[in-house]
């Protein structure tokens, strides 16, 4: 056994030949190509792999929380902005209502007025419409009381009026840009004024369902009662409202002054 160790020791004293470098490179390249992987990194990748996914997950969670908090903080400001923008058009509509907004009100009101409605009611209606088309002039205290009282009456009207009247009444204040209900100082109005305004509103509602034929019939009734001045005004108003309406010959004889 000692002889074996001596031989081994002597053998290890022989030159230690090594394979040439190009052979090493060729073999290692072949090994890498075989597994289609890159050379092993100097730093063991297990550490990076161990931390990569938890780190990425934590980053995503932090980002999601931050975005949520940011959105929630921004939300009240946006709500305020949207409420402001929602009220702004209403105010603008009230101040200077556009012509197309006033146009649909006419057909809606025209077929709803009852036959034989007094001209004063229609004047009230016209005045209201004119207020919608022009910047509102300073109304008289009587008019203001009537206009302001109207929405208050309208609020409880649906239970008292017919469906057709309700439809016309609801449409009309919107079309003429009546002040919002919360602005109506109805409780402060005097009882007499309140009653007057209620009557006027009822008549206004009735006239809202008036058709051209009914309007002409009303004018004919005025003629019959020899209230020619009022009949002329109504006729002029009618022609202004319905410029293309061809009045039948028989009806024209009844509504025109002879």
């Amino acid at each position: 056994m000692a002889d074996d160790d001596d031989i081994s020791r002597r053998y290890r004293e022989l030159p230690r030949e090594e394979p040439p470098r190009h052979l090493d490179d060729a073999i290692l390249a072949a090994a890498r190509r075989a597994v289609h992987t890159r050379p092993a990194p100097l730093v063991v990748p297990s550490g990076r792999q161990r931390w990569y996914f938890p780190l990425a997950a934590a980053a995503i969670i932090v980002l999601a929380v931050a975005v949520t908090v940011h959105v929630e903080r921004e939300q009240p400001a946006e709500d305020m902005l949207s409420s402001n923008t929602a009220t702004a058009p209403a105010a603008a509509r009230e101040a200077v209502p556009p012509a197309p907004a006033a146009e649909p009100a006419a057909p809606a009101r025209a077929p709803s007025a009852p036959a034989g409605a007094p001209p004063s009611q229609r004047r009230f209606e016209m005045r209201d419409e004119a207020r919608a088309q022009k910047p509102p002039p300073a109304p008289s205290s009587d008019e203001r009381a009537r206009n302001e009282a109207a929405p208050a009456v309208l609020q409880k009207a649906p239970t008292e009026q017919s469906a057709g009247a309700v439809m016309g009444r609801v449409e009309a204040p919107k079309a003429v840009g009546a002040p919002p209900p919360q602005a109506a100082p109805a409780p402060e109005a005097k009882p007499a004024e309140r009653t007057k305004a209620a009557i006027a509103t009822t008549r206004l509602a009735a006239s809202a369902v008036q058709s051209p034929e009914q309007w002409l019939q009303g004018i004919a009734d005025l003629r019959k009662q020899a209230r020619h001045e009022e009949a002329d005004k109504e006729l002029a108003e009618f022609r202004k409202r319905y410029p293309d309406y061809k009045i039948p010959l028989a009806m024209r004889e009844r509504v025109e002054r002879r």
Partner: peptide, 26 residues
């Protein structure tokens, strides 16, 4: 490990056995 795709394992094996094997063959 090399069979599982770890090229670094082959490099370790090669470095460990290259000299002895080469002298054996030579």
């Amino acid at each position: 490990a090399y069979g599982a795709g770890d090229a670094g394992a082959f490099e370790t094996l090669y470095a460990r056995h290259r000299g002895g094997l080469f002298r054996f063959v030579l």
